[in-house]
Design a protein around this nucleic acid. Structure first.
Length: 959
RNA sequence: GGGCGUAUAGCUCAGUGGUAGAGCACUGUGUUGACAUCGCAGGGGUCGGAAGUUCAACUCUUCCUACGCCCACCA
């Protein structure tokens, strides 16, 4: 197949991707091969491919293609996430366009609508991943709400419940008043906003006074409206101003409503801050909640004055003024301040104007760290509700240990500290969400409020007793609760679990696979923990992995633990850490051996890309313009560990040029009768240039393997780039041109064979980075008479079985050195680059130069070669590896220019020689430095001195 | 307040205990059949600052400065 003169990525990308996928090559049958597994972070089903996905998936695809080429049973698990809040919001927005809202429908109707939406629009991102060239196993594409996954989620919830690791609790949660759901700590973003800081008086009850004779206590707050739900004023137990009040059991009268509340002693109050007294609103502040509990207030008794919309409602004591009821929290804030002011209890803040005048304000302006919901972007309200919590602290312990003991390697290592810091201070994880779209919590309540947590309603009914009225918990689970199961629930858990063989029995494979796979009499039905599910104790049971194990022949057994997880550091806590916890809990083993964390792709100016800022770069646009291969190569080349990537479109363009370069090199080979070889081993070669390039392949391969083993994507990409362009194209192809142009013969045959072999090695080594162009060329360059029987994607990684030929390397290095010196000298002296110049070589070089005559004529543009003592007179002199080559140029060059050129070179070399001389003259260096360093300094010095002498001599000859 | 990261050529970034590299940009030059999405040659950096360790520091240590990120707290 003759290659087109231009390379058109769009034309080949679609064709090859479809072919790979249709022919099942993303996961070829390799039952006997060593498994290698990566699970893809499931993108939100609502998502479309953004630049961060492009990075994340390119890196994974490079590794998975590399491992596949190395012959492993490489599995890249793919699927999408149901993305509870995000998806529900998308569908609600769609309803809003028709002037409808979620609550116009029943829950079932709405959920059906979401499924409809998913069926129609949920495939966007998976199509886009294909455009990037990602070689995932689509035959097992999963969804976090598909049937099997749902079973896994339910089982995990029930198991954790039975183990006492999931419980229901009444406490403050982060409440999103816009989405009207609880969210976890991680979904809250703390943003600094300008706010106010008010001070006011709480009059002391019963005529009491403070130690300094005041009849009130000053409190300060940024949220005055919550004072209506205050339940105490706290002071530090050792605060002299208030000890007497505490001892006397003094109280304060809450302004506006006149409710009398106690003064309590609590270490939380900082005597150094303000008055040292702090209002306590246990129902609306996380710190106050704790203080309240210490003061003996049970959560059920805590006053709550807001509803789910963050509007004022009556507290339990009905002590909210009527005119505030129904008011939004921010309006209530203004109203409360106005009331306090009216009662003369507001202490004005004295500020200075720019002119130095003092003015009074109601409050001190202040920067306040404000909690915002990451989805809704509204201020989060601490709100007292019943929610389901996961005992994250217990689950975290083995996950911490796994990193400490090296069961999981985090790359780059610097992230370990962040991981430990978070895991060691982990808080209970609120997993219930007041949404309709998601995994419904598998808990049923009877009319008395007893909870039954079972996998099915039937089981719950059985437990509750026949005829008992049951009502299912309306909440769904946090999306991350389900995605935490991704590494094992996508590959057969829990269906492929079988009871652990008896520990004392010598028969390890007691369970026949066939029997285990049988659906009806599944061993699952007799699992040991069958039976009453209301466990009395909260003592953790053994992890499921200890009594149930993966069936030996299953994917679950084979591909868990996964080998590697690649994710952005931004989901380290959300997802990675939770996978570590759940993986260990349910599989008894870490989810993956290595965790690679990459950074963010930033805009060209270094700012964070965001839709609202309008500075996003669309990866699909880049693919359209430069090709998927170029974008992928960019991502790889820019991915150095521990650093974000700044978008640089010029660089993407550069890698498009690289693809074009390779295309043209292939065209050149093709037009010269070179076909890519099908031999794994390097061909036999006699010519230095061929022996040299084989050695270069060997070295490149070593460097590349090392870089990929270390997950140094940048080093890997640069290695193959540099070899292809600077070695193969710039030198090897130029050096073999004269050999190809002659009559033919043995040398030409050998060269065609070697060139074809090297080309083949490039295709394979480059394939993980640029899968499309390499697959295209790999087929196009196959010998006419023996087309490839299989595709590059499932070909074999290079194994040249050759070594570096040092003699050949020395010779080619000399050619490169001589050619470069010649070109440079000509350029500096203003001699036409094409001018063929006769040269006088030292007699010692006669054999080499004679053998290389045609090559040197071509690349270095030499004319006649003569040997021995050069004639005197105006000449250009080249010093190459310590030997002088004279190029007589009587009448052609300006002798002064040549002198200047040589002087400059001499100066540079002398400087280096002198520096080395100084070092060698330092006794401390010679005595204390490593012997290799001293030896190297000696040889370098000898070399530089010799070169300096040569240059000096050359200069002298010019008079 | 705690933690992490970054600072190297005009720009974007690699890098190593032994006197600095790439791509782009820039300058000069070249189109007698692979490629102008190209070739050849070249200019350009006291490696953020200070001190220390060392025979030797861009590299290791400490401190400082600037920028960025994460976590916590601010009643």
């Amino acid at each position: 197949m003759t290659l087109d003169t231009t390379f058109d990525p769009a034309a080949i990308e679609q064709r090859w991707y479809a072919h790979w996928e249709e022919s099942g090559q993303f996961r070829p049958e390799r039952d006997d091969a060593e498994p290698f597994t990566i699970v893809n972070p499931p993108p939100n089903v609502t998502g479309s491919l953004h630049i961060g996905h492009a990075l994340d998936n390119t890196l994974q695809d490079i590794i998975i293609r590399y491992e596949r080429l190395k012959g492993k049973d490489a599995l890249w698990v793919v699927g999408t996430d149901h993305a509870g809040i995000a998806t529900q919001m998308v569908v609600e927005r769609q309803l809003a366009e028709d002037q409808k809202k979620r609550t116009d429908f029943t829950r079932e109707e709405f959920v059906d609508k979401v499924w409809e939406w998913k069926a129609e629009s949920g495939g966007t991102i998976t199509r886009q991943l294909r455009r990037l060239g990602c070689s995932m196993d689509w035959s097992n594409e999963r969804f976090t709400m598909d049937e099997g996954f749902t079973r896994a989620v339910t089982k995990v919830f029930v198991d954790l419940y039975n183990q006492g690791l999931i419980y229901r609790d009444k406490r403050l949660v982060n409440w999103d008043p816009k989405l009207k759901t609880a969210i976890s700590d991680l979904e809250v973003e703390n943003v600094e906003q300008s706010g106010h800081f008010w001070h006011f008086h709480y009059p002391l009850a019963d005529g009491a006074t403070t130690a300094d004779g005041k009849d009130h206590i000053v409190v300060a707050t940024t949220r005055p409206e919550t004072m209506l739900a205050d339940m105490a004023v706290a002071v530090h137990p050792s605060d002299e101003r208030y000890v007497a009040l505490i001892e006397a059991g003094a109280k304060v009268v809450l302004p506006i409503t006149g409710r009398v509340i106690p003064i309590v002693a609590d270490e939380h109050a900082d005597p150094e801050l303000g008055s040292g007294a702090v209002k306590i609103t246990p129902g609306h502040d996380f710190n106050d909640f704790e203080v309240g509990k210490r003061a003996g207030i049970a959560p059920v008794d805590m006053l709550n004055m807001l509803n789910g919309d963050a509007k004022v409602v009556n507290t339990a004591d009905a002590l909210v003024p009527d005119e505030l009821i129904g008011m939004d929290r921010f309006d209530a804030r203004k109203a409360v301040v106005a009331m306090l002011k009216e009662q003369g209890l507001l202490i004005p803040h004295v500020a200075k104007t720019k002119k130095g005048e003092e003015i009074e304000q109601d409050a001190e302006p202040r920067k306040i760290m404000t909690p915002l919901g990451d989805r809704s972007n509204v201020v989060i309200e601490p709100w007292l509700t019943d929610q389901w919590y996961v005992d994250a602290e217990t689950l975290a312990q083995p996950a911490i240990k796994a990193i400490r003991e090296g069961d999981i390697e985090i790359v780059p290592k610097s992230w370990e500290k962040t991981y430990f810091n978070w895991m060691e201070n982990i808080q209970p994880w609120c997993v219930s969400r007041q949404l309709w779209w998601g995994h419904r919590i598998p808990v049923w309540y009877d009319d008395a409020g007893n909870a039954y947590c079972t996998e099915t309603e039937e089981e719950a009914q059985a437990q509750a007793g026949e005829g008992v009225n049951l009502r299912r918990d309306p909440d769904v689970l946090d999306t991350w609760f389900s995605s935490a199961l991704w590494p094992f629930a996508t590959i057969g858990w829990p269906d492929d679990l079988v009871p652990n063989p008896p520990r004392h029995g010598e028969v390890a494979d007691a369970v026949a696979p066939a029997e285990a796979a049988d659906g009806g009499g599944s061993p699952l039905a007799q699992r040991p923990d069958d039976g009453p599910l209301h466990r009395a104790s909260a003592v953790p049971l053994p992890a499921s992995g200890e009594d149930m194990v993966p069936r030996p022949d299953s994917d679950l057994a084979r591909h868990y633990p996964n080998d590697l997880l690649i994710s952005g550091f931004d989901i380290l806590f959300f997802w990675d850490a939770r996978m570590a916890m759940q993986g260990i809990q349910f599989m008894g083993e870490v989810p993956w051996r290595r965790l690679y964390l990459h950074g963010l792709v930033r805009a060209a100016d270094g700012s964070k890309m965001s839709k609202s800022k309008g500075n996003t770069v669309d990866p699909l646009g880049l693919i359209d313009q430069y090709g998927a291969d170029a974008l992928r190569f960019f991502m790889a080349a820019m991915e150095s560990q521990g650093r974000d990537i700044k978008m640089d479109e010029k660089r993407v363009e550069g890698y498009r040029n690289f693809a074009t370069k390779l295309w043209n090199a292939a065209r050149f080979c093709q037009s010269n009768g070179i076909a890519a070889s099908t031999s794994l081993a390097a061909p036999e070669a006699t010519l230095p240039v061929n022996r040299w390039i084989i050695g270069e392949v060997v070295e490149t391969l070593e460097t590349l393997d090392k870089a990929l083993a270390d997950l140094r994507f940048d080093a890997a990409a640069n290695t193959i780039y540099q070899f292809t362009w600077s070695r193969f194209c710039d030198w090897y192809l130029e050096l073999i041109k004269p050999l190809l142009q002659g009559e033919g013969g043995a040398d030409a045959d050998e060269t065609r064979t070697v060139a074809g072999w090297v080309l083949d090695q490039i295709f394979v080594m480059l394939h993980p980075f640029m899968p499309f162009i390499t697959e295209e060329l790999w087929h196009a360059m196959a010998p006419e008479d023996s087309p490839r029987g299989y595709d590059l994607i499932t070909a074999k990684w290079p194994n040249p079985r050759a070594t570096v030929d040092t003699d050949a390397k020395a010779e080619i290095d000399w050619i490169i050195g001589f050619t470069t010196a010649m070109r440079s000298a000509k350029n500096e002296l203003g001699i036409a680059p094409g001018a063929k110049l006769d040269c006088w070589f030292p007699a010692s070089l006669e054999p080499r130069v004679t053998a290389l005559q045609s090559t040197l004529e071509r690349v270095a543009r030499i004319g006649a070669a003569q040997f021995g003592e050069a004639p005197t007179g105006a000449s250009m002199q080249l010093v190459v590896e310590g030997e002088t080559i004279t190029v007589p140029l009587e009448g052609v060059i300006d002798i002064e220019e040549e002198k200047a050129r040589l002087s400059k070179a001499l100066e540079a070399v002398s400087k280096e020689a002198k520096s080395l001389e100084g070092r060698l003259g330092n006794a401390n260096f010679v005595e204390r430095a490593k012997p290799e360093a001293v030896e190297k300094a000696r040889t370098d010095h000898a070399e530089k001195s010799a070169e300096a002498e040569r240059l000096a001599a050359a200069l002298a000859r010019l008079g």
